[in-house]
């Protein structure tokens, strides 16, 4: 547990981190330029979500940088994955695995483009927050919807 305490400290509250803290971390709406102490307020949700926040922070933190060479490498990887996709499609023996494989490949490609080409990995974390929120709501939402369409009338 040392690395946990080392990286994320022990005395943060989720609310403070989400809304009051100045910095450039994940899941953060940026702060305005000048800060001053907030008056004492009641926070009925203060504190007890701390662990969840720490897990989120750990899952999502990361550093890195990119330049033209990186871009070419990423493009090469993208191209290779596309080739593998098409090859996989043409091999009849692999066809039973087609759907999951294609989904995984497209998610990898999706993530590569978003993270490196769209600079989400290096940019302000708020952009990630916005985009990932939309993706999560969308994916959850349409999964439920597809389930409902597929299992219409289940149980009657």
């Amino acid at each position: 547990m040392d690395w946990w305490a080392l990286n994320y400290g022990g005395n943060m509250s989720l609310l403070k981190d989400l809304f009051f803290y100045q910095g450039n971390k994940w899941w953060k709406i940026p702060e305005t330029t000048e800060l001053s102490e907030n008056p004492k307020n009641e926070h009925p949700f203060g504190g007890f979500l701390e662990k969840a926040k720490n897990i989120l922070l750990i899952l999502s933190s990361g550093k890195g940088h990119a330049g033209p060479v990186y871009y070419w490498i990423i493009a090469a990887i993208l191209g290779i994955i596309t080739l593998i996709e098409v090859w996989w499609f043409t091999v009849p023996e692999l066809r039973y695995m087609l759907a999951p494989a294609m989904l995984i490949f497209s998610i990898i490609k999706f993530a590569l483009v978003v993270a490196f080409f769209m600079h989400l990995r290096f940019d302000h974390k708020m952009f990630s927050t916005i985009f990932i929120t939309c993706m999560v709501v969308g994916i959850l939402f349409f999964s439920v919807f597809l389930l409902l369409s597929a299992f219409h009338g289940l149980g009657t």
């Binding site: 609310l15 989400l18 809304f19 009051f20 709406i29 940026p30 702060e31 305005t32 330029t33 000048e34 800060l35 001053s36 907030n38 307020n41 708020m126």
Partner: peptide, 12 residues
């Protein structure tokens, strides 16, 4: 998100 006056946190 972007045009708040200085010091106006989300929770203000």
């Amino acid at each position: 998100i972007n045009m708040r006056a200085p010091g106006m946190h989300m929770m203000r």
